[in-house]
Simulated scan of single mutants.
Amino acid sequence: MKTILTILIFITISCYGQDKVTGIYSYSREHFSETLQLNDNYTFKYNFMMHFIRQEIIGNYVVAGDSLILNSFPQRDKIIVQENLKGNFRNKKFQVTLKDGYSFNYQLYLITKSNDTIISKNQISRSRSRINELKSFYIIDSKGLKSPTYFLKGTNTNYFDVQFEHIRVFESEKWIIDKKLEKIRPIGMDNEYQNYFLSK
Rank of each mutant, 00 (worst) to 15 (best):
K121L: 12
L85Y: 12
N91A: 11
G101S: 05
V21E: 01
S147W: 13
S28M: 04
Y159L: 14
L181Y: 10
I176N: 10
F160R: 10
N41P: 00
S67G: 00
L38P: 04
I140C: 04
N105F: 05
F151G: 03
Q75V: 11
N156C: 00
G17D: 09
S142I: 12
T112E: 05
I184L: 05
P186S: 07
G59R: 03
N84R: 13
K2Q: 07
F44R: 04
G23P: 04
T35Q: 08
L5P: 01
K179C: 01
F160V: 09
L5F: 13
F48N: 03
E133G: 10
F160S: 08
R76M: 12
M1P: 03
E133A: 10
T112R: 05
I177N: 00
C15S: 12
N191L: 09
Q194P: 00
G188T: 02
Y150M: 09
V63Q: 15
I9H: 07
K146N: 03
D116S: 06
Y102Q: 15
G23N: 06
K45S: 15
R29S: 07
Q18A: 09
K92P: 05
T112K: 07
K113E: 14
L5I: 15
L8T: 13
K45Y: 11
I24W: 00
D161W: 02
S72I: 03
K45N: 15
D66M: 06
M49E: 15
G188K: 02
K146V: 06
G23S: 00
R128Y: 14
I24D: 11
D116T: 04
Y109W: 06
I57T: 14
I118Q: 08
H166M: 05
Q123E: 15
Q123Y: 04
Y106C: 14
K113H: 11
L5V: 13
E173L: 13
A64Q: 15
E173G: 06
T157S: 15
Y106P: 11
S125D: 14
Y109A: 08
G65K: 03
F170C: 01
F52I: 06
Y102K: 15
I24E: 14
D19I: 02
V62F: 00
V162D: 03
S103F: 01
T22M: 08
L98E: 12
I58E: 13
D77Q: 14
E165I: 08
I176R: 15
L5K: 06
R130I: 12
S28Y: 07
F44I: 04
I184W: 08
G87S: 12
G101R: 03
Q107C: 07
L68V: 06
Q107S: 15
I184T: 06
G65H: 07
T149L: 01
C15L: 14
I11S: 09
S28F: 04
F137N: 03
D116K: 11
F48A: 11
Y109G: 04
C15F: 13
Q37L: 10
K113S: 08
R168H: 15
F44V: 12
F73V: 10
G144C: 05
K174I: 05
I24Y: 02
K146S: 11
L36M: 08
N132G: 10
V21Q: 01
N158I: 02
T112M: 11
I131S: 13
I11H: 01
N71Q: 10
F52M: 10
R185Q: 15
W175F: 14
I111G: 01
N47H: 08
K180R: 08
I53P: 00
S114W: 07
D66W: 01
K99R: 12
N105W: 07
